[in-house]
């Protein structure tokens, strides 16, 4: 792919910077999530290292990159959190942290909007509805 090619032809994942962008974002994003008192109780019993790998897979998906999550995976993966009271407010908080992360990395607003839109497509599965 060349620089002269129209941006519109590239996928969101490519425009946002592909894997290096995920790597740049993952620590910043996860640090925000763990520091956020609205949601960090959901991470109390997870191993940080394993969770960081999952966050990377999540960001790859949110950036429109290659992933093999299904809606069913999303439901199963979050079912125990829904039992703990996971609801829309927590989902919003995670999306907010992701947006703030991307702003910190100087990602243009229109790309952030696309990322948020991808996250929105998972809301009902994540919340088990």
């Amino acid at each position: 792919m060349t620089d002269t090619q129209d941006n519109a032809e590239k996928s969101l994942y490519e425009r946002i910077g592909a894997e290096p962008a995920v790597n740049a974002a993952v620590d910043i994003f996860y640090r925000k999530v763990l520091s956020d008192h609205r949601i960090n109780r959901f991470f109390d019993n997870v191993d940080m290292e394993k969770q960081a790998a999952k966050q990377k897979a999540f960001l790859t998906m949110a950036f429109g990159g290659p992933h093999n999550y299904t809606g069913e995976d999303m439901r199963k993966g979050h079912a125990h959190l829904v039992k703990m009271g996971l609801d829309d407010s927590h989902f919003d908080a995670v999306v907010e942290n992701l947006g703030a992360t991307l702003e910190e990395l100087n990602v243009p607003q229109e790309l952030i909007a696309e990322v948020v839109a991808i996250c929105e497509t998972t809301r009902n599965d994540v919340l088990g509805r």
Partner: peptide
């Protein structure tokens, strides 16, 4: 270790450096 892994990360250490 479990607690400090999270806390040192929140305080700014990169996960690859823990």
């Amino acid at each position: 270790i479990k607690q400090m892994k999270t806390m040192t990360f929140i305080k700014g250490a990169a996960s690859a450096d823990i």
